[in-house]
Design a protein around this nucleic acid. Structure first.
Lengths: 143, 143
DNA sequence: TCCTTATTGAAAATCTTTTTCAATAAGGAT
DNA sequence: ATCCTTATTGAAAAAGATTTTCAATAAGGA
């Protein structure tokens, strides 16, 4: 089911701005701030109000097409997300993000924590920072 | 080394407002918003400017005495943190937070992810939500 | 092509966080 | 105990981020 259908299903419409915002997010593999999304849209020839960016992101999050990414400082970006449960690892150098699921490792970890803490775990937020393979190579060249 | 010493070490001072803010955080085991911290301080008889709350939190984070907690909505709270590396699990019912480290489970998980993604992992953000033992009991009573 | 109604954009409102600067208070020196 | 230096505070203002309002526009079914 594509986005068009997802929207129509709920009486919503696939509009120009919504398409453009999706394209901006698709063309970048990294978390973007609402401001940045607006800029990129402008650069590619579509003037979109910042208000619309906010509204669209909210919508896309509901549709599970986009996720919020948290920085240590609290400021957060938005990134396209494929369906299903997974997490993001973000490169400190180039900013690109990669999805991973690490499914069984996480399940084991959560089981262990449930035993240790006696909490019933309902949801988790896991986000990694590191250096991607490409940027590791560059680092080597510099030396 | 207590907070007094930590501060003096850097030419900083342990002031009334800083003490009060620490007390507020100590007396609650859950993440609080800056606003809420100010309110609690008022309630216990100390009028502190919101500006001071922000500044103090920033300082306490540098001193590793406090951590930021991220909500799904991006709005974040601040919570007291004991030294060392660990994470927080937050109860959805009562809001209380518990620290855990789950050290080896996490190390294994990160190793696995490094192998899978070829990223070099530098840091991670892990935060859990669930129901604490006490609130699980209450749930049973209701039934 | 028309019509209904979801959507957009501009401006204003709201909320959060940071900066500025004069007044205050911590804590070492006397 | 008192003085002095300077870190810290609070009030107001600035800056930034996000949301609301409302009239104008445009999607998509009839």
């Amino acid at each position: 089911m594509d986005i068009q259908q997802k929207l129509n299903q709920q009486g919503l419409r696939l509009t120009q701005p919504r398409q453009v915002i999706m394209e901006v997010l698709e063309s970048t593999g990294m978390p973007l701030l609402p401001q940045t999304i607006q800029q990129r849209a402008h650069e590619s020839g579509s003037k979109i109000s910042l208000v619309t960016v906010y509204r669209t992101l909210e919508l896309l999050i509901e549709l599970k097409l986009v996720r919020r990414i948290h920085g240590q400082d609290g400021c957060h970006g938005y990134i396209l997300s494929s369906p299903g449960h997974h997490h993001h690892i973000i490169c400190q150098k180039c900013g690109r993000a990669l999805e991973f699921n690490g499914a069984d490792g996480i399940v084991k970890l959560l089981d262990q924590i449930e035993r240790d803490t006696k909490f019933k775990i309902e949801s988790h937020l896991l986000q990694l920072q590191g250096v991607c393979p490409d940027c590791q190579k560059e680092k080597d060249h510099e030396k």
